[in-house]
Amino acid sequence: MPLPFLTADRELADRAAESAALPYDEPDHWRRPYRPGPWRVGAAAVFLLLASFVLLSAMIIAMAGSPPGALTVAAVGALAIAFALRLLRVGVWVSAQGLRQVHLLRTTTEPWHAIASVRTRQQPVRWLGLPRTVQGQALIVERRQGAPLRALVTDHSGDFLTRPAAFERATDVLEAWAAEYRP
């Protein structure tokens, strides 16, 4: 069933993204220049659903009279919620200070003056982050000193699988940020 209010919102966001490469009034705030993809949002929703069942079982265990067991199960539910929220934050974030790559367990931040180039190239990429590789496009950031960063964005990641136009738009915006703030 089509939801017209979602379609209109998406069209407005697409028009704003096309009208300006850097459509933000406050460049000092960290922001992701693209929306999380349906695969990433779906996985987070599954973990939140699982967390709701785990927390419901913690409540039942607490009412049955086993507080230590209930606390253990509630902690597992809280970890599932934290994992789902972190999964939604995974991606590339930009600001006037630099470029930030957020992973599940670590975050890498590079200031703009330490980045030599930001470009898209064809290479083998991981499909949905799994060990299987396929031929695809990746956004590569080369540092002035040291090894290049891992591929920031790929067209087969959880954000851009089956959305090639969104991948092109996101890489264009990231390259525009680099052109604007890299010395």
Rank of each mutant, 00 (worst) to 15 (best):
M1N: 14
M1G: 15
M1R: 14
P4L: 14
P4F: 11
P4C: 11
F5S: 15
A8P: 06
E11Q: 15
E11A: 15
L12A: 15
A17N: 10
E18L: 13
L22G: 00
Y24P: 00
D25R: 15
E26I: 08
D28Q: 13
W30H: 05
P36I: 07
R40P: 04
V41S: 10
G42M: 06
A44D: 05
F47N: 01
L49T: 14
L50W: 05
A51R: 01
A51C: 06
S52I: 09
V54Q: 07
V54G: 05
L55S: 03
S57T: 11
S57C: 09
M59V: 15
I60K: 09
I60A: 14
M63V: 15
P67I: 08
P68M: 07
P68V: 05
G69H: 06
V73A: 08
V73H: 04
G77Y: 00
L79F: 13
A82K: 10
A84W: 03
L85S: 07
L88N: 06
V90M: 12
G91V: 01
V92C: 02
V92E: 00
V92W: 02
S95T: 06
S95C: 13
A96W: 02
A96S: 14
Q97K: 12
V102M: 04
V102C: 05
V102P: 02
T107H: 03
T107C: 11
T109N: 08
T109D: 09
E110Y: 00
E110T: 09
H113N: 13
H113Q: 13
A116P: 06
S117V: 09
R119F: 15
T120H: 01
Q122F: 12
P124R: 02
R126K: 12
R126I: 04
L128W: 01
P131E: 08
R132G: 11
R132F: 14
I140A: 08
G146K: 02
L149P: 02
L149T: 04
R150D: 09
V153E: 01
G158A: 11
D159W: 01
D159Q: 03
F160M: 07
T162D: 11
R163H: 08
P164I: 07
P164Y: 06
A166P: 04
A166W: 03
E168G: 10
R169N: 05
A170V: 07
D172G: 11
D172M: 09
A176L: 04
A178E: 00
Y181C: 06
R182T: 07
